[in-house]
């Protein structure tokens, strides 16, 4: 379990992390999501004890990372943005060194190294020098180092950068497997990845936590996340009349295009059940009126939109602050 309390990091006058506050439960996959320079890596560096925080506290399984660093660090495996590899070592030498550095008991070292090499499929390259490996393999060596000794908490900073699609899928599977017994925290600016892998998403923008929830809830969080788009030849007044019968409509917006069709956006009442689908009702209403529908489409706020809205709202607010 990780508790981050009121974390602040300043670089000179630049505020990289701005009063972050959260708690992470064991056995879940957490995703840090945010645009470049949002403070994801800095937060991870502070959580692992690589950097000191200007203010605030990080407590890992009851151990403060600054007061009892050695005890706290034993519970963490960390893969930084750039894998910390010694180029002049072979893969197995490097992993043995990492195992000794992490103070694994002498008897378990060999087993652990063998196990992580099996998991990350490094057996074929174990006697090759790291400097001769491709980027994907290097990333895997870094990952192997992070999960070595199977610490309770595994922190991965952009683990799939530079990998080919097949490797990305392998690593995602690996992360899911790991999460059965460990807490995994990963950062990314790729939305699809976070949505697919993570149980819980934390969106960070300009060092602040702007939202944190499950991917599904985040999508629902948006106002008017459930809406329909239709296109028809009827006039807006007619559309309004036809849809009068359909219950559960919050609001309608019309747009008359040049070729005499009406484009309407219908927002569904959010209180009337989240999964309520009005498409059938709308279709039947138009059919009864004998008015053809050219298009009927359910549009839902995607995670992308949530992300854009949350991170850009921040920017607008910040700009307003400057004025």
């Amino acid at each position: 379990m990780i508790e981050v309390k009121n974390l602040v990091k300043k670089y000179g006058t630049h505020l990289a992390v701005d009063h972050l506050d959260f708690q992470l439960e064991p056995g879940r996959i957490y995703g840090f999501l945010g645009p470049n320079g949002a403070g994801k890596s800095t937060t991870m560096n502070i959580m692992t004890g690589y950097l000191g925080a200007t203010e605030g506290q990080v407590v890992i399984d009851g151990h403060d990372i600054l007061k009892e660093p050695e005890e706290a660090k034993k519970h963490i495996g960390y893969l930084p943005e750039l894998p910390p590899l010694y180029m002049d070592m072979t893969v197995s030498e490097y992993l043995e060194f990492a195992a000794e550095l992490k103070e694994l008991p002498r008897k378990e070292r060999e087993d652990s190294v063998q196990k992580v090499m099996d998991i990350t499929r490094l057996n074929d390259v174990q006697f090759r020098l790291i400097k001769n490996l491709s980027k994907g393999y290097r990333q895997r060596v870094g990952l192997a180092q992070a999960i070595l000794g199977f610490p309770d908490i595994i922190i991965l900073d952009e683990p799939t950068v530079g990998l080919d699609p097949k490797q990305i899928i392998e690593i995602r599977e690996l992360i899911r497997d790991m999460a059965k017994e460990h807490t995994v925290i990963l950062s990314s600016h790729i939305l699809a990845e976070v949505r697919e892998v993570c149980d819980y998403i934390m969106i960070i923008s300009k060092g602040k936590l702007v939202a944190s929830d499950t991917p599904e809830n985040l999508e629902h969080l948006m106002a008017g996340q459930n809406s329909l788009e239709i296109e028809t030849k009827a006039k807006p007044e007619d559309v309004r009349r036809i849809l009068k019968e359909v219950s559960g409509i919050e609001r309608m917006e019309f747009d008359r295009t040049k070729d005499a069709t009406t484009y309407a956006k219908i927002e569904v009442k959010s209180g009337s059940g989240r999964e309520q689908d009005l498409r059938e009702a709308v279709f039947l209403a138009f059919a009864e009126a004998g008015c053809p529908l050219l298009m009927l489409k359910a549009s839902r706020a995607s995670l992308e939109e949530v992300f854009m809205e949350l991170t850009q709202a921040e920017e607008v607010a910040a700009d307003a602050g400057d004025l």
């Binding site: 050695e70 930084p80 910390p84 550095l101």
Partner: peptide
Amino acid sequence: NKTDQLLLTAPV
């Protein structure tokens, strides 16, 4: 080479 990240985040 940023390998100091390995040393400084290790329990040493």
